[in-house]
Amino acid sequence: MKAKFLVPLALFLVLVGFLAFGLRLDPREVPSPLIDKPAPAFSLARLDDNSQRFGLEEMRGQVWLLNVWASWCVACRQEHPVLVDLARRQVVPVVGLNYKEVRGDGAIDARRLAPEQELAMAVERARGWLSAHGDPYKLSVLDLDGRVGIDFGVYGVPETFLIDQRGSVRYKHIGPITPESLEKVLLPKIEELKRAG
């Protein structure tokens, strides 16, 4: 019974263990309930040609990434070179979901804009951004009101979804993709999905 005095110490160490584990968790990373579920269907206007629409079914049979971006998003700028590099390597097609291009920019009062004005403004801003920073996307679609973003559970930009051949979401990356997270997490997952067919 001599070791009794060690009991509080042991309890304290357990507590420290819990706290240390808690420190490593990022409360900003909310796990997506969409993982291993079919990606939400959408049909949105393309950035390169507004008269055409694009939907999930066009990517069926391919492993691809859906990257949520906007020209007002600062972290997207940080992520962008990684995406451009990924596109150059032609590993996987990346589709851009341009999220609330006009309404998301706090400097613009989008309520005063007519829908066609908003569309024109979004196209101009998004295209300008891509020509300035490089266009890694197979194509981008315009989610002007953020509805499709809500369907995908987007709560911050950038976010990236890995979608498999059957159209299921297999992984969600929250925040900017870094070269490390690309090499260590995304690329292995992509390879695994491609091999599984």
């Binding site: 796990p31 309930p33 809500i150 559970g153 709560y155």
Partner: peptide, 8 residues
């Protein structure tokens, strides 16, 4: 909302 954002 839970289907999109989870129990959180």
């Amino acid at each position: 909302l839970v289907a999109r954002y989870g129990d959180f």
